[in-house]
Design a protein around this nucleic acid. Structure first.
Length: 733
RNA sequence: GCCACCGUAGCUCAGUGGUAGAGCACUCCCUUGGUAAGGGAGAGGUCAAGGGUUCAAGUCCCUUUGGUGGCUCCA
């Protein structure tokens, strides 16, 4: 006799087990008709689920109460659409395509599948697949769930011979895998549930229509999907394991209506226009040249202005916060990075070392492997020093070369700035009275990112961090973290950036893999959490995500196509001072280890500017715009006055341009608008006579009227000085 | 690094084995026009690079290189 509690708090009592559909029907036939599934005790389930015990139940339809598309409803139809797409693909390309795994995602769904040798799925097949999907939807076949006991299920699957499904089933039942032997094989304790039976979904009648091993839930029938299409292809590894089978991941999406799908496609097209790679090319902000190298940004004059203004702004804020600026070279000796620990542990992520010519000649007979060995080994003295200071076998004996004459010295393009900064700190004695020491540098670093990961300005191989290292006493850590975050807050607020989130990486308390005392960690973690809270944006605490040397705070933003990029980071480091033997003299007249805070709140100028281009869609505020004003004479008759206006603007320090082209004014306006110049000054004979300018602000349809040139200049200068994020200069203001 | 797709004028792109194309930008001429492109002419190409098939290759095949989407990675 289940008593069912509905979302409004009311209850319905039934004297026998009922399905969710029956409950919906009892509420109203129109609801039952609209129902796609249900949530029982908060868990999304099929509409046909039989309810035998008391529970809370919400009927899921295509819309929420406030008439928005229901995410749970979308989840249901997309999960179902994944099945329909898989069936369509097998109909078009053959049953020998083996299905692996097909879940819904935020924007649609995908299905991973194994395409046998000699077969191919390409975008040429999309039309045929989409036609078949539409047919299956039109057939409006019911999704029929049936369960098979574990003893019967495995023979059934083995008979079907799809090893991926067998693997999925074994995982679901907590059995050891009989077919997957990858490194990422699920450990026994990772099996969350041991299902007593397996569920299958037939798209129609079991045994007659297409079916798939699937946990569910699904929409009631294919007709309820609305509209579904296949969108793109990619590859993916089985269980994300690169040593395992490579599968084809087919992406698709589904919506309740064609109009919603059309809108989604339109949104994607609009977003693509904001892409920093597109805008960067159109507005000539940066250039990447294959002869220079992949992932290496050439900052063209326009982009350089944006970057320089940003750096000037950041540098001014740093100065207010008591930072001192330093400069360090782009390379450093190998021993520096052996001391810091960056080499050779992260050698795969670095450009290979630069070895002196003499050393190369002396080792000419060596194999490549032996040469690398001689480059990577550490001298006994360096190893002994590090091991003593870190109180552990940080440099293991197999990495030490006793015969120092065999060691090959060299340099590295620096992957990080901290070793150089540590050496600056160590170059002079420090008293506790001097602390904290805050060393800041727009430091350029180089990392060997995998070629497939490179992306415009957001993932590159050479980039300039807005880096600084704060050398402080243990007590100063919380205040310094807070300082880093208030800097982020000021700059994001100035730029009008609100859409970012914060991750706080905490240690895994059950692990012993961290350096520094637990008390220090607790204090630093509390300080990170408190600082993150103070930002007033969404933040998450992620245990186990700390670096081994300390907790950290990361700032994450999304690009126009929804990919997340980590911008800045603030990391507390209890290890570096040990490795570099850093110290300050305390009030007790004894040396103490400082704590180091690494912080690059905007990550890199490259990534930050890339994100900024998308944030503003290329329409920068006046203070950042490569060209702030363009003077447009109505005709050649006004060229002299236009030139005088330009000279006045330039004398005032404004970045101004002049369009003396043979175009009519309409053409000049169009070009200036396309180039997203903040202010156009249209000048003709009338303006020349009264020494005024007709101001047309970016984004307005017409000019805002004439104003005296001097008034415009002073208003614009004020706007620039204030780093306003919107355009405000207008006549009469 | 892996898989798929792509690379034609400065930019955006047509061109399915038979003489290399368009629009914009650029240069010149006409037009002197008050707010999102007036008109005309000209110039501009090793069709990413290399190799192969073919009487003939931008087009088909192979290799290299770069880009895009995804996977994996990211101190």
């Amino acid at each position: 006799m289940p008593t069912i509690t509905l979302p409004d708090g009311s209850t319905k009592v039934f004297d026998a087990p009922v399905t969710a559909y029956d409950v919906a029907m009892a509420i109203g036939p129109r609801l039952a008709q609209a129902a796609l599934g249900c949530k029982i005790n908060g868990e999304l389930r099929d509409l046909s689920t039989l309810i035998e015990a008391d529970c809370t139940l919400a009927v899921v339809t295509d819309k929420t109460r406030d008439k928005q598309p229901d995410p749970d409803g979308l989840f249901l139809i997309r999960h179902s659409a994944a099945h329909v797409m898989a069936e369509a693909i097998q109909d078009v390309l053959g049953k020998d395509i083996l299905l692996a795994y097909g879940p819904p995602t935020d924007t649609g769904f995908f299905y991973d599948m194994f395409v046998p040798e000699g077969k191919k799925i390409s975008s040429d097949h999309f039309d045929a697949i989409n036609r078949r999907i539409a047919e299956i939807i039109k057939e409006d076949r019911k999704f029929t769930r049936y369960e098979v006991g574990s003893s019967d299920a495995m023979p059934k699957l083995k008979a079907e011979g799809n090893k991926y499904k067998i693997d999925n089933a074994e995982r679901a039942m907590g059995l050891p895998s009989s077919v997957y032997h990858g490194a990422k094989s699920a450990p026994a304790d990772a099996a969350p549930t041991r299902a007593a039976s397996l569920s299958f979904y037939a798209t129609g009648e079991p045994g007659k229509n297409w079916e798939d091993l699937c946990r569910g839930p699904h929409a009631p029938s294919t007709g309820r999907i609305g509209v579904a299409v296949v969108t793109s292809l990619a590859s993916a590894y089985w269980h994300g394991d690169e040593n395992s089978d490579r599968l084809i991941r087919v992406y698709g999406t589904a919506f309740f209506t064609q109009a919603e799908l059309d809108q989604y496609i339109k949104q994607r097209e609009e977003a693509a226009k904001r892409d920093h790679r597109v805008i960067g090319k159109a507005l000539r902000l940066f250039h990447i040249d294959e002869t220079v190298g992949q992932g290496l940004i050439l900052w063209t004059p326009n982009g350089s202005i944006v970057r320089k203004e940003l750096q000037t702004f950041i540098a001014a804020e740093l100065k207010k916060q008591g930072y001192t600026e330093v400069f360090t070279p782009h390379i450093g000796g190998l021993d520096l990075y052996k001391t810091s620990g960056h080499f050779p542990y992260y050698k795969d992520a670095q450009f290979p070392p630069i070895v002196e010519r003499d050393a190369l000649e002396a080792n000419a007979g060596c194999s490549c492997a032996e040469l690398m060995n001689r480059v990577e080994k550490v001298s006994p003295r360096l190893a002994a020093g590090i091991n003593e200071r870190t109180g552990a076998q940080t440099i293991t004996s197999d990495r030490v070369e006793q015969d120092e004459s065999k060691l090959v010295q060299g340099f590295m393009l620096k992957p990080m700035n901290c070793p150089h900064h540590a050496k600056i700190f160590a170059s002079a004695p420090h008293s506790y009275r001097d602390m904290p020491v805050r060393l800041a540098e727009f430091g350029t670093v180089y990392r060997w990112e995998q070629s497939g990961e490179l992306n415009g300005m957001t993932r590159v191989r050479g980039f300039t961090q807005d880096d600084a290292h704060l050398f402080c006493t243990e007590d100063q850590v919380p205040a310094e973290i807070q300082g880093c975050l208030s800097l982020v807050k000021v700059i994001f607020a100035t730029l009008g950036m609100k859409d970012y989130r914060v991750r706080v990486g905490l240690r895994d308390k059950d692990s012993s893999k961290f350096t520094g005392s637990p008390e220090s960690w607790d204090k630093a973690e509390a300080a990170c959490v408190a600082a993150a809270k103070s930002l007033g944006v969404s933040f998450s605490q992620e245990p186990g995500e700390a670096a081994f040397y300390g907790p950290k705070i990361d700032f994450v933003v999304k690009d126009v196509i929804g990919r997340e990029w980590q911008l800045g980071t603030v990391q507390v480091d209890y290890q570096m001072a040990n490795r570099f033997d850093l110290s300050y003299i305390g009030p007790d007249n004894k040396p103490h280890r400082p704590v180091v805070i690494h912080r690059a709140p905007f990550g890199s100028m490259e990534r930050f500017c890339g994100v900024l281009i998308e944030h503003f869609a290329g329409a920068f505020p006046a203070w950042l715009s490569p060209q702030q004003v363009r003077v447009l004479p109505i005709s050649e008759k006004s060229n002299d006055y236009a030139q005088a206006v330009l000279d006045t603007l330039k004398a005032a320090g404004v970045r101004a341009g002049l369009d003396l082209g043979a175009d009519r004014i309409q053409g000049k306006v169009k070009v200036a608008a396309d180039e997203k110049v903040p202010y156009m000054l249209i000048v003709g004979p009338r303006d020349a006579e009264s020494r005024t300018v007709s101001v047309r602000r970016r984004g307005t349809e017409k000019d805002l009227g004439a104003m005296p040139l001097d008034a415009f200049v002073s208003a614009l200068k004020a706007e620039i000085a204030a780093r306003r994020s919107d355009l405000g200069v207008q006549p009469g203001a």
